[in-house]
């Protein structure tokens, strides 16, 4: 039910302690998120690509995630160059493209892809139970950990219920059109998805309670921090720091 297929693997990154990976991810993402520097964004993307190659993940699955993110970015490319304005423009006949707009769209593209790749490489390679446990031992409040774990957990439940219902529509030859029947059907579909997910979620929660669950997910194999983890942490933080001060050179 829980889709964690990036988490199964035995690469160097899979074997790193989740706590260490969370710290590195936070540092890297913070640096990339706040930068306005073109070089920093480019180097960050290269670093992220390198990182993901260490994780030995199926390229197809990674590409699919990237496609999802970049389909949003397409909208930026459609709007920013046309609307951003600014002094310098590039003219194509009657269309004026803002150079600053293009610059910003490029920067966002680089940053978004670097961040998503780093997230997949660092956090995708641990199971949610391990990450939750790591966050907990890093001092995040128990309630927040719980909330995080379960929102992740139930997104799949909701998605599954939605898939089941829309399959039921399809086998009864439902073809969407712009009419009241379609809107009403979509209304039902939406409503039923929520109701059924709610019911299912509470049944799963009951199953967990019956098995002694008391608010804390305990991972089956405890991860200890070893020398490789310290090495990875030190190198990654150093490189991230270099990335951050790159504009000073």
């Amino acid at each position: 039910m829980m889709d964690e297929h990036f988490a199964s693997g035995n690469s160097q990154l899979h074997r790193r302690n989740p706590k260490v990976k969370i710290i590195v991810a936070i540092a890297f993402i913070t640096v990339v998120a706040v930068t306005n520097n073109f070089t920093v964004a480019t180097v960050a993307l290269i670093a992220a690509v390198l990182l993901i190659s260490f994780a030995h993940l199926a390229p197809g699955s990674v590409a699919k995630r990237l496609l999802a993110v970049n389909s949003f970015i397409v909208f930026l490319w459609l709007t920013l160059p046309l609307t951003y304005g600014g002094e310098q423009t590039i003219r194509f006949g009657s269309i004026a493209l803002s150079q600053e707009g293009i610059h910003i769209a490029t920067l966002i593209t680089l940053k978004a892809n670097a961040i998503i790749l780093a997230l997949i490489a660092l956090l995708g390679t641990s199971t949610i139970a391990h990450l939750g446990h790591a966050l907990d031992s890093l001092g995040l409040s128990k309630r927040l950990c719980f909330l995080l774990l379960f929102s992740y957990r139930y997104i799949f439940v909701i998605h599954n219920e939605y898939k089941k219902l829309s399959r039921a529509l399809k086998i009864r030859c439902f073809v969407p059109a712009t009419n009241i029947h379609t809107y009403r059907t979509y209304g039902y579909l939406f409503g039923m998805t929520l109701v059924r997910s709610w019911n299912r979620a509470s049944r799963v929660h009951q199953a967990m309670l019956l098995r002694g669950f008391n608010g804390q997910l305990i991972p089956l194999d405890t991860k200890t921090i070893n020398r490789n983890d310290y090495f990875f942490l030190a190198t990654s933080l150093l490189l991230t720091f270099v990335l951050a001060i790159l504009p000073l050179f």
Binding site: M1, M2, E4, T127, A129, V204, A207, M208
Partner: peptide
Amino acid sequence: DDQLFSPTVIEDVAFG
């Protein structure tokens, strides 16, 4: 389906 919630069988059986 309501009873199994962990990704792998071993994790689910060890949960209790």
